Every structure is written in structure tokens, then in C-alpha cells.
Amino acid sequence: MPRKRKVSNLMGLAVLSTLAAGPAHRYEIAARMRSWGKEHDMGVKWGSLYTVVDNLAKHGYVEVAGSERDGARPERTIYRITESGQAEMNDWTRELLSSPEPEQRRFMAGLSILMVLPPDEVADLLAQRITRLDNTIERTRAELATFEGTLSHLFLVEQDYELAMLEAEAAWARTLHTSLLDGTFPDLQAWRDWHQGIVPPEQITASTEGGTDRSQQRPD
């Protein structure tokens, strides 16, 4: 089970991994993260950078290594990762790689209540999603191709994973879309009748582990 961390924002891990490459001030930290694509990999919110760095310093994961001034610009504080910060970074990375953790996914949330929309509309929406997924897959493949022969695959594993997940989702969405079009989706007619104001001959129920039924009800 993932343990509670003093700094739980993934941006904290991004900062630690950036400083592991060498001391830097906040501007350099941001520049490194951008060049390494961390805003994409870890959902970085740049407005939180100062707060995250301060929190890391508060808990002893980073420390001030000095300062510098560039011309008339304000003095910049330079940070470096500490021994405890290195240990936290390593432990956090081990956890992320070894422990699957349920994620809140917007698509899954939509699927859980897709019955509130008519089947034909759901099919149209899935078609739009598939088109967008295909476009993203094409862009991701193109990005990976630009790095072939110039960058070690060690630094591209996360994009390779993203591509595999996108392809898997697109394949699954196509299967669902096809079943709605060819009529093979289970209880499709009952679903249509529901939206036409006809009471289905049977209510589809699912029993929870505790024995409670989750009965479908016609939407208002």
C-alpha cells in the first residue's frame, strides 16, 4: 500500500529528480523539467513550483546551496538535493514502479453512467473519442520516431507506455462502438426502450458484495 508522504504532489518528485542532476535555482529547475517533458509525465502545474520547492526544503529533502545574481536581476537561490531527499526520491520511484494504484479516470466515470444517454448518441461520442485517440497515437508515434537513434530508450520508456495504453484504449473503444452499431451489445433493445419511455420487461440488476442491488432506473 502506498505510504503517506510529507510531500505527496508528484511535482515534488519531478523537482527531486531534476536536482539529482545537479544544483539549480527555480528557473533552472523549471527549464530542466520542460526540456525533459516532466509537465506531461507528472502533470506539473508551474504555479505550484515555488510552494513545492519550499515544502521540500521544509522537510529537509532539498537545501540551499548558495545564490547567484545575473546582472540587475534579483538574486536567485540555488537548491541541491539532500541525502534524505535522495532516499525519498528512490523510495517514491520504487513505489510507483512496483505498486499498482487505482486512478480516477474520467473515461471510466463516463462509462459507469453511459446509460443516461441513448445508445446512438453514445456510439457517436465513442466515434469522436476514437478519432481523437488515433490522432494522439499518430502524434506520439511521430515523437518517438524523432528520437530514434539519438536518445537512449531508457529515457523514452514512459512515452512507450503511453503509446501502448492509448492503443489499448482505442482498440477497446472500437469494440464497444462496433457492438453498438451491429446490435451485439447486451440488452441494447432494453436500453433503447428505456429512453423511449417504455418500461423494459426486466430490470438489469447487479448485486454488490454486501447483497445490495444496483437497479437501473429510468432517467428523469
Score class of each variant (00 low, 15 high):
residue 164 A to H: 05
residue 105 R to T: 09
residue 113 I to H: 12
residue 12 G to W: 00
residue 211 G to R: 06
residue 29 I to L: 04
residue 128 Q to A: 15
residue 150 T to H: 10
residue 53 V to K: 00
residue 35 S to V: 02
residue 204 I to Q: 11
residue 83 E to K: 12
residue 208 T to A: 08
residue 48 S to C: 01
residue 139 R to T: 12
residue 116 V to P: 11
residue 136 T to P: 03
residue 56 L to K: 02
residue 156 L to D: 00
residue 137 I to P: 14
residue 23 P to Q: 03
residue 176 L to E: 01
residue 59 H to Y: 11
residue 204 I to W: 02
residue 2 P to L: 13
residue 113 I to S: 12
residue 94 R to I: 06
residue 129 R to F: 14
residue 41 D to R: 14
residue 199 V to D: 14
residue 133 L to H: 13
residue 173 A to Y: 01
residue 181 L to R: 15
residue 72 A to M: 12
residue 32 R to P: 04
residue 26 R to N: 05
residue 39 E to G: 05
residue 107 F to Y: 11
residue 167 E to C: 05
residue 68 E to D: 07
residue 20 A to C: 02
residue 76 R to W: 01
residue 35 S to E: 14
residue 122 V to E: 04
residue 130 I to H: 06
residue 138 E to F: 08
residue 169 E to P: 05
residue 186 P to Q: 05
residue 114 L to T: 09
residue 32 R to E: 06
residue 101 E to V: 14
residue 178 T to F: 03
residue 166 L to P: 04
residue 176 L to A: 13
residue 61 Y to E: 11
residue 177 H to S: 15
residue 40 H to Y: 08
residue 36 W to G: 03
residue 88 E to C: 02
residue 134 D to Y: 07
residue 45 K to P: 01
residue 173 A to V: 05
residue 164 A to E: 08
residue 126 L to G: 14
residue 43 G to E: 02
residue 58 K to A: 09
residue 202 E to I: 12
